[in-house]
Design a protein around this nucleic acid. Structure first.
Lengths: 260, 260
DNA sequence: GCGTTAATGTTAAAATTATAACATTTAGTG
DNA sequence: CACTAAATGTTATAATTTTAACATTAACGC
């Protein structure tokens, strides 16, 4: 180890702390050493900075891109979610006030919202908030509280009251399990209050779930299937799936199962 | 424009949404097109993905490294902030419940919090929340509301009540202006309520400002200098600055001006 | 179905980045 | 003050990425 090396890394780390990248050339100049020395610092020492195409970037750093390569499989999962969201998008109209549920299901929808002139999004999820915060045309209301890392969302005891005060137009709800008899469920109990409150106040309720969630029951029940006006799903088989497995779903339960 | 191109980008965007990088080679395989096509998508279309050393990374995307090159000057600015935060760090103790103000001043502090065993952070800023959300040892409480992009923070009418309910130990407050006669001020009015509430409830109040903020007045006044227990600043000259320019600062106003 | 245009693929050359080997400087020691 | 070893610098070479030009394929209108 070397004191100077550590000093250089600290300097570079702070330069990169709030994001951005630093070209190796500039980093070398900044520290007044050769590029090779910076290279060696980065490989020799234990550091959070990694070198990516000649540029220094922060890795494994809070809020900043961790540098690891996604496998193709990981990446390809998003296709299904994307298609699902494209269908949900059809229900969104100019000027809507949307409640967007937590989870990864609705994420692909968010970037599409930039095509509207003006919208409002209400959410209790950090990942959703981040995606929406980047859209200048969308007003963002985040319902805060204690952060739950597993679902990237917040929970608080006055979530229900906070949601009821808002004029939510359409609620886009996701779920981890949908079962004809046992209803709609999710993994985490703190999600129940916001989901139920949104369902209660929204004028239109959309359940957005891919077909793999059907006939699945998860720990936290939050709604019956017929609490929703629309079920947006991705596979042709899904409506059948809803009709089999127990008894036939009343027409009114899934008035608009959207199938491609 | 091209529908397929947009589809590919959406797919890639979703793949990268949760961070990580994707090698151009893998991105091409994933979309079943040549690397050149992906390259063209990225340069032709308006997208948040950028190519860095042969890898796709999310740019200008919430919570993820924006890809722009820091100038040497910009880079060296962070040194000052880092040193400032190092001093503020000295006041933080194991188990504390910290109120962390919005702005960029306190950001370098957050990564240092990983060295504690257990802490709680209360904030109303999105960038702070993102940084803290990544720390497994820190409990995060985010005070939500309507999002203000200019300060990356939230404002709501029950912010004061929400803060008063929390047992905040130490308040770390930043400011855009500090003046002996005109007090401590910031740019945005929605920041006033949370700052004041935190100052009111916290057991210890720290004003963390670099010396460039002294003798500056900004639109939104929120506190007098002697509302704080400690002023953490970065330059040797700062205490003098506080004493000049009007009259002498009473000893009690700045009980612990921390100087290197 | 043919012609036209846009989209995509292929290839080779140019530019950039990474690696390795060796030269030089610097710091510490007796 | 010389000797040693670590740290840093330099150079050449290899690998990779970028760019540009041109070939091919697919989509669309008439």
């Amino acid at each position: 180890m070397n004191g100077r090396s550590a000093l250089r890394l600290a300097k570079l780390q702070e330069a990169l702390a709030s994001g951005g990248t630093l070209h190796l050339r500039d980093a070398a100049e900044l520290c007044d050493v050769s590029e090779m020395t910076i290279r060696r610092d980065l490989t020799t020492q234990d550091t959070a900075i990694s070198l990516l195409g000649g540029r220094l970037v922060m890795a494994n750093y809070p809020g900043v891109t961790p540098i690891y390569d996604l496998t193709e499989q990981q990446a390809s999962h998003y296709q299904a979610k994307y298609r699902l969201c494209q269908r949900a998008l059809a229900y969104i109209e100019e000027g809507d006030t949307l409640f967007i549920d937590c989870g990864s299901t609705l994420m692909p929808l968010l970037s599409q919202l930039s095509h509207f002139r003006e919208l409002t999004v209400v959410t209790y999820a950090l990942n959703v908030a981040n995606a929406v915060a980047a859209l200048p045309n969308v007003r963002l209301v985040l319902l805060g509280g204690l952060f739950y890392a597993t679902s990237q969302s917040f929970g608080s005891d006055n979530m229900t009251a906070a949601i009821e005060r808002l004029g939510i137009n359409k609620a886009l709800i996701s779920a981890a399990g949908v079962d004809l008899e046992r209803g709609v469920s999710c993994f985490h109990f703190h999600e129940v209050a916001p989901k139920q409150a949104a369902i209660a106040t929204a004028m239109q309720r959309l359940l957005v779930v891919d077909a793999s969630k059907f006939s699945v029951v998860r720990p936290a029940y939050f709604a019956a299937l017929d609490d929703f006006d629309v079920v947006v799903t991705d596979e042709e088989g899904a409506p059948q799936l809803l009709k089999k497995n127990g008894r036939v779903v009343p027409e009114i339960v899934v008035p608009t199962v959207t199938v491609a």
